[in-house]
């Protein structure tokens, strides 16, 4: 038997919520980035599951998932470069201390 669509959706929702908690409650910039990656992956699971169960003859869901993966890779590279630059200047990547642009 194949897995029903709702199982995938519930699993992806749980994954997205875990990532959301990680983004909202961490103060280390790298930990926040890891939560973001989890959220992007949950979206990918949803896209592929919808594509598999609603339009199985087309690959549109997979194409969107591949674009999401490419953009997540670009985002991770730039974000980690920024984190390393910030760390070099301040020897800290605690986002609560990065408030020099606050009004």
């Amino acid at each position: 038997m194949t897995i029903p669509l709702s199982w995938w959706l519930i699993s992806a929702t749980a994954l997205f919520s875990i990532g959301l908690y990680g983004v909202l409650s961490n103060k280390n910039a790298i930990a926040i980035l890891m939560g973001l990656e989890l959220m992007l992956n949950a979206v990918n699971i949803n896209l592929v599951a919808f594509g598999r169960h609603i339009t199985p003859l087309e690959v549109t869901g997979q194409i969107f998932a591949i674009f999401v993966i490419a953009i997540a890779a670009a985002e991770a590279a730039v974000a980690l470069a920024i984190i390393i630059a910030v760390y070099r200047q301040r020897t800290s990547i605690n986002v609560e201390q990065l408030d020099s642009m606050r009004f």
């Binding site: 959301l20 908690y21 909202l24 409650s25 961490n26």
Partner: peptide, 11 residues
């Protein structure tokens, strides 16, 4: 961080 409880509730 200090708001982790709120973050947990939101999630």
């Amino acid at each position: 961080n200090r708001q982790w409880g709120l973050g947990l509730a939101t999630a």
